[in-house]
């Protein structure tokens, strides 16, 4: 099997190029510069990782995002290096041959391959909503995960259930971690997640041989440790109370904070504001649209995408204020009446 360095060489890159990219990877994964020699050694010697990519109730958007990761590795190297032994959308074979290839890969790379799952699982009615080659998705997942070295759930569907899980959830969609309760799952949520983040997580695993540091929801701390709001370049406008009130107004043109337009940045953990999209070009807020928190659990169900956050969830309104005052006044009147009775006449 080829190591990353060998693939670089084969594609006509110099060792200088290789070192440059390794340095970039090390910083992207969030390791200190002192780790660079170790990383170089690992990527020179360790064989390329074997990846089995399963898709269930998904839209293939995460795969699209993955293959468009351009900033960490050159495109030709990337697809060569991360050898997708099985990927329903990308692989050439189909039908029984494809299933056979997967079985073989699992057999051959027992305990070594990385299992990536995209899309939510639907175990309802014995998996009738999502079957491949006559097998239910739950069965496929259990089978593939048995001997996996590392399980990565990509996209909000695989991590939290995502859009299939949203009300009323007709297919009984659920995150894969609920099926694989006894296994550790690395979550890379997002709809879709940033391609570079997926690549960096996989390469980081190759470099260290360990899964990355995770938070309590199983997300890599490096990429999901901070909220969008924390790192948003429009944060000063938020603090100053300068908001865009509609997509057409003066505030929107001036690039003011999109909070009032329903930005969920303050409660969304993702790397959009730092890593950004399309090779570091932009991210939703930069292009003038509020973040709607796609990487957070149940983002679709929390409320209307464009309703702002800080308000009372569900609204309060003057009617309830008046109702409260009316109740209080009635109680006060009653209390005063009783107290006056008990006080007696002076």
């Amino acid at each position: 099997m080829h190591s990353l360095y060998e693939i670089f060489k084969r594609n006509g890159y110099t060792r200088r190029d290789f070192l440059r990219y390794v340095a970039l990877l090390v910083s992207a994964v969030g390791f200190p510069p002192s780790f660079l020699p170790n990383a170089v050694k690992a990527l020179e010697s360790k064989p390329k990782p074997v990846v089995i990519w399963l898709e269930f109730q998904d839209c293939a958007g995460c795969s699209e995002s993955f293959i468009r990761s351009t900033s960490l590795l050159p495109a030709d190297v990337l697809l060569d290096y991360l050898s997708l032994e099985y990927h329903e959308t990308l692989m050439a074979p189909s039908g029984l041959q494809a299933e056979e290839a997967k079985r073989e890969a699992i057999e051959r790379y027992k305990g070594e391959y990385i299992l990536i799952v995209e899309g939510s699982v639907s175990p309802k009615y014995k998996g009738v909503y999502c079957t491949i080659g006559g097998k239910s998705n739950e069965e496929i997942l259990k089978e593939a995960s048995k001997h996996a070295r590392l399980i990565i759930a990509v996209g909000s569907c695989a991590c939290w259930g995502g859009i299939p899980h949203a009300e009323p959830n007709p297919t009984g969609a659920m995150p894969i971690s609920e099926i694989l309760k006894d296994k550790k799952v690395v979550h890379i949520p997002g709809c879709p997640p940033i391609g570079d983040v997926m690549v960096a997580t996989i390469v980081g695993f190759v470099m260290t041989g360990r899964e990355p540091a995770l938070d309590n929801l199983g997300r890599p701390k490096t990429f999901y440790g901070q909220t969008i709001h924390d790192r948003c370049y429009r944060r000063p406008f938020y603090n100053a109370g300068k908001f865009a009130s509609s997509f057409e107004d003066e505030g929107a043109k001036k690039g003011y904070c999109l909070y009032k337009l329903g930005c969920k940045g303050p409660i969304t953990r993702n790397a959009c504001a730092t890593v950004r999209w399309n090779g570091g070009l932009s991210f939703p807020i930069q292009s003038g649209h509020p973040c709607f928190g796609c990487s957070e659990p149940d983002f679709w169900d929390r409320s209307f995408l464009y309703s702002p956050l800080s308000v009372v969830e569900g609204g309060f309104g003057w009617k309830k204020v008046l109702a409260g005052i009316a109740v209080g006044s009635a109680l006060g009147l009653g209390s005063a009446y009783i107290n006056k009775k008990l006080r007696g006449v002076k």
Partner: peptide
Amino acid sequence: FAGISYRFFRVVFLG
């Protein structure tokens, strides 16, 4: 809102 109006009117209605 109920509490403060209660406390207010509890005193006011004492006359």
